[in-house]
């Protein structure tokens, strides 16, 4: 049954890119929920994740697992520096000012990445050797399975952190009412720093996972980040389930339209559907 094999193949590749969009979308949501802004540096967290992975493997000679951990932690650290030294000194609560700052910081970070790693395309090996597995006639790359598995782990950890730890409660409180959060003693600064660390880790993980499939260069995160942003809006900006649904929905739309219509139109189809959804539901699929 070639039809079934095709359908599985398209769905599977849609799920894979959808998982990446979902990770990036969750990063956008975390910062939006605690600071009320769109953090455009998110796109560069993705590129930086791939770059740090590259250096961990080839400059430091680390094995895969420590390499992934180092890359993700490294991006989280850079994200914290971005908040602490890029946004906080502005001492502004004005979302427009802060969003503009993230645009500027994104350009600066991209410049620094270009300076350190150069403009050339690089190749990152997949987490495990690339022998495709057969599944009802569709072939699955192990890297794609890793993407789905690690995305799932990241989502579980994220929910556990937000709903089961005191700091997670503080973060939900700030997102729900920042004045009330301040008068019960929650330090907004620490919450913002944490939200950047989490956004960095999510973006970094997305970069580590996706760059073996795409290629790696200093601005690989820009287009992916835009898709992640679109996924977050599609799901309802700020909603975690919405970000996941939006990411997977966008990924599936892209790959199904590429498969059944034409790959030349996959972005067009995806964004036309995005617009239609927003016309019908301006707050996104799961927005409040």
């Amino acid at each position: 049954m070639p039809e079934l094999a095709d359908f599985l193949q398209y769905s599977f590749s849609g799920l894979t890119s959808g998982a990446i969009y979902a990770l990036i979308a969750l990063g956008f949501c975390v910062v939006n929920n605690t600071m009320g802004i769109v953090n455009f540096v998110q796109v560069d967290f993705v590129s930086l994740g791939g770059m740090l992975m590259f250096s961990a493997l080839f400059a430091l000679g680390l094995p895969m697992v420590p390499g992934v951990l180092l890359a993700v932690a490294g991006v989280a650290l850079v994200a914290m520096l971005v908040e602490r030294f890029g946004l906080r000194p502005a001492r502004s609560e004005n979302p427009l000012v802060l969003i503009f700052l993230t645009v500027g910081l994104s350009i600066i970070l991209r410049g620094l990445i270009k300076l350190v790693w150069g403009k050339n395309r690089m190749a990152l090996p997949p987490l495990t050797p690339d022998l495709p597995l057969e599944f009802f006639g569709a072939s699955l790359l192990p890297q794609a399975l890793w993407i789905l598995f690690l995305t799932l782990i990241a989502i579980v950890l994220l929910l556990w952190f937000f709903y089961r730890t005191p700091l997670g409660l503080s973060m939900r409180a700030v997102a729900s009412n920042s004045t009330a959060a301040a008068v019960v003693g929650i330090p907004a600064g620490r919450v913002r720093l944490t939200s950047y660390a989490i956004a960095g880790a999510l973006g970094g993980l997305a970069g580590v996972l996706v760059t073996p499939i795409t290629t790696l260069n200093y601005d690989v995160g820009v287009l992916l980040g835009l898709k992640g942003f679109a996924a977050a809006i599609l799901g309802g900006f700020g909603s975690f389930p919405g970000a996941i649904l939006g990411g997977v929905g966008l990924g599936l739309l892209e790959s199904l339209s590429a498969g059944y219509l034409s790959s030349a139109y996959k972005d067009v189809v995806a964004f036309v559907v995005l617009l239609l959804v927003l016309f019908v539901r301006p707050k996104g699929l799961l927005g409040k």
């Binding site: 005191p166 700091l167 729900s176 009330a180 959060a181 003693g185």
Partner: peptide
């Protein structure tokens, strides 16, 4: 009233213990 509307009633009250909870990451 300045509650946390999206949080549960229990979580709202738990935030009153923030100073004791210690929220080190």
């Amino acid at each position: 009233l300045k509650l946390f509307p999206r949080l549960s009633v229990l979580d709202n009250v738990l935030t009153g213990l923030t100073c004791e909870a210690g929220s080190s990451m």
